[in-house]
């Protein structure tokens, strides 16, 4: 799968947030998107998935050559895209088991039949791998979960849904070092030629666990520089002030 973002512009209300984002990513690649708070990173993930709060004012998002911006969010998901949310919502009254069962059915519709026994076996294995207690199968999705539990639940969903490309929106934020390691393990398990990821993060910490092939820095609604792991080292040394000084413009952008 190839995702090609071309000149993407979007606003929320009257405030422009994305001001011409260009980014090409393929299955088999792991990209990191970094940048200071308010630079538009989370907006990018929401716009790619079609969140109704954002209005696209320009550009295209091509998935294997097809513009997805006219598609409904669920149609985009059904292409094999996955979004791990920064703040996963609580879905009261819907158990993890029932939700995932149906999500897996939708994901593999027409490809393979989802049988209860096999599904539960896969789910239990994935939960073990993500160090999530089996009792969570019967809990309502994310309701009363700790921040770390919610993030692990996002990665569990990703493991079950086997997307071709996944955007992880600040999955690392708020996690302690052990939880971070578990989350990273889940992402690394997915890594192969048929899976790509965009890891959105404010910190370099998670990139010690998931080595990105490409690193992009976003600032004021644009990707201002791209490169390899050396950019992370640069950021670690000099902080975001360096980005601000080098690429900053007059206007302020709010996320």
């Amino acid at each position: 799968m190839e995702i090609k973002i071309e000149g993407l512009e979007a606003k929320i209300g009257d405030t422009p947030i994305l001001r011409g984002v260009d980014l090409t990513m393929k299955s088999g690649e792991v990209h990191a998107l970094m940048g200071p708070n308010g630079s538009g990173k989370s907006t990018l993930s929401n716009v790619v998935f079609g969140h109704p709060s954002y209005e696209v004012t320009g550009g295209r998002v091509l998935v294997d050559g097809e513009d997805i911006l006219e598609m409904e969010p669920h149609e985009r998901a059904r292409l094999g895209l996955f979004l791990a949310f920064q703040y996963p919502v609580e879905i009261s009254g819907v158990t993890v088991g029932r939700f995932l069962r149906r999500a897996v059915e939708i994901r593999f519709e027409g490809q393979k039949e989802v049988r209860t026994k096999g599904f539960l076996k896969d789910l239990r294995e994935a939960m073990d791998f993500m160090e999530i207690d089996q009792q969570f199968i019967n809990r309502y999705l994310n309701e009363g979960f700790s921040g770390g539990e919610k993030k692990r639940m996002e990665i569990l969903q990703m493991l079950m849904l086997q997307p071709q490309f996944s955007i992880l929106d600040e999955t690392d934020s708020g996690l302690d070092i052990d939880a971070l390691a578990v989350v990273a393990r889940g992402v690394n398990k997915m890594r192969d030629h048929d899976f790509g990821a965009l890891i959105i993060t404010h910190y370099q910490r998670i990139l010690d666990h998931i080595k990105p092939d490409f690193v992009h820095i976003m600032y004021q609604g644009r990707i201002v520089t791209s490169g390899g792991g050396e950019i992370v080292t640069e950021l670690e040394k000099r902080g975001y002030d360096w980005v601000r000084a080098q690429y900053g413009q007059e206007e302020e952008v709010h996320e």
């Binding site: 998935f49 409904e72 969010p73 669920h74 998901a77 879905i91 009254g93």
Partner: peptide
């Protein structure tokens, strides 16, 4: 709306998402 969007991001159509949320509202 954010709950519908969340479910949509997992492939649920808006209709199914709304129905699940309604059932879920009463389910406890």
């Amino acid at each position: 709306r954010n709950e519908v969007f969340y479910l949509a991001s997992r492939g649920f159509s808006p209709e199914e998402a709304e129905e699940i949320l309604l059932q879920g509202f009463f389910e406890p």
